[in-house]
Amino acid sequence: MRLFIAIEIPDEIKEFLYQLIYLKTSLDGVSIVQKGNFHITLKFLGEVNEGLIPDITNTLRKISNGFSPFTLKITHPGVFPDKFKPRVIWIGTENTDSLKEMAKRIDEEMESLGFKREDKNFKSHITVARVKNFHNGKYLFEKILKKFSGESSQLKFQVEEFVLMKSTLTPKGSIYDVLQRFPLVK
């Protein structure tokens, strides 16, 4: 079972992001993420033996009990690895202290369960497109930059929980299902 830990995005933010990236024509070699799949990944676990799920959920419950709800702000569009050869187009969110600490704690606790620790610093973002054709990816990114305005960066939402998600790969894209919700209760 393929799993990851994430923060879900409210529907009104999903709609805003969809309108931001929407083009009337498709671009060869650019796969737009389905609106319903927009999220912030806190930790990708990969293929997980179902027998580990109780340990994972118990650990995540303990983590969520140590955090209070907090606000995240949409910041700006970006790409990985760079704007000349984009592989992923994303919309950033503010890297608040609460968010960074939550991601760090999840990473540390999941390592104690045998999952690989992240090598790089956590970068809060919402993936909106995956790119195989660099030229078209660069074109889409430039369109998004033009549409993104100061008003866009005033969008905020309240984080009141994180979730354990199951990802099923299909020829039409990934299907995400929430396995369990972990409310922030501190």
Results as ranks from 00 to 15, higher is better:
113 L>G: 05
125 H>D: 01
117 R>I: 01
123 K>Y: 07
134 F>E: 04
134 F>K: 13
122 F>G: 01
112 S>A: 14
130 R>L: 03
130 R>C: 06
129 A>C: 09
128 V>D: 09
117 R>W: 04
139 Y>C: 04
143 K>V: 03
112 S>Q: 11
116 K>R: 11
102 M>E: 12
118 E>V: 06
105 R>P: 08
143 K>Q: 08
121 N>D: 13
123 K>F: 07
126 I>K: 03
111 E>C: 15
129 A>G: 05
118 E>H: 08
132 K>D: 00
122 F>T: 03
112 S>D: 09
105 R>T: 14
132 K>I: 00
110 M>V: 10
136 N>H: 08
115 F>G: 02
122 F>A: 07
125 H>P: 04
103 A>F: 10
144 I>Y: 10
143 K>I: 11
114 G>D: 08
117 R>N: 07
124 S>Q: 08
123 K>H: 11
100 K>C: 06
132 K>N: 02
144 I>W: 10
119 D>I: 13
122 F>H: 05
113 L>E: 00
129 A>F: 14
142 E>K: 15
128 V>S: 06
130 R>I: 02
113 L>N: 08
107 D>A: 11
104 K>Y: 12
128 V>W: 12
132 K>V: 01
106 I>E: 01
114 G>L: 08
126 I>Q: 06
140 L>R: 07
100 K>V: 10
126 I>C: 05
144 I>T: 05
144 I>V: 10
135 H>M: 12
131 V>S: 03
138 K>H: 12
105 R>K: 14
140 L>K: 05
109 E>Y: 09
129 A>T: 00
100 K>H: 11
143 K>G: 01
143 K>S: 01
124 S>A: 15
109 E>D: 10
133 N>T: 03
119 D>V: 13
137 G>S: 07
141 F>E: 00
122 F>W: 09
100 K>M: 12
133 N>E: 07
117 R>K: 15
143 K>Y: 07
127 T>Q: 10
108 E>Y: 12
142 E>M: 13
118 E>T: 09
102 M>L: 15
121 N>I: 04
102 M>V: 10
115 F>K: 10
131 V>F: 11
126 I>G: 07
107 D>Q: 05
120 K>N: 09
108 E>L: 14
113 L>F: 14
129 A>D: 00
127 T>A: 05
124 S>G: 15
127 T>H: 08
107 D>P: 10
137 G>V: 04
108 E>A: 14
130 R>G: 06
135 H>K: 15
110 M>E: 07
121 N>G: 15
117 R>F: 02
141 F>D: 00
118 E>W: 03
121 N>R: 13
118 E>Q: 11
140 L>D: 00
104 K>E: 03
113 L>W: 15
137 G>M: 07
105 R>N: 13
104 K>A: 11
121 N>Q: 12
111 E>V: 13
112 S>P: 05
123 K>N: 02
108 E>D: 14
123 K>L: 04
106 I>S: 11
123 K>I: 06
137 G>D: 01
102 M>C: 08
114 G>Q: 12
118 E>F: 03
102 M>K: 10
101 E>S: 13
111 E>K: 15
107 D>E: 04
100 K>D: 02
131 V>T: 04
114 G>A: 07
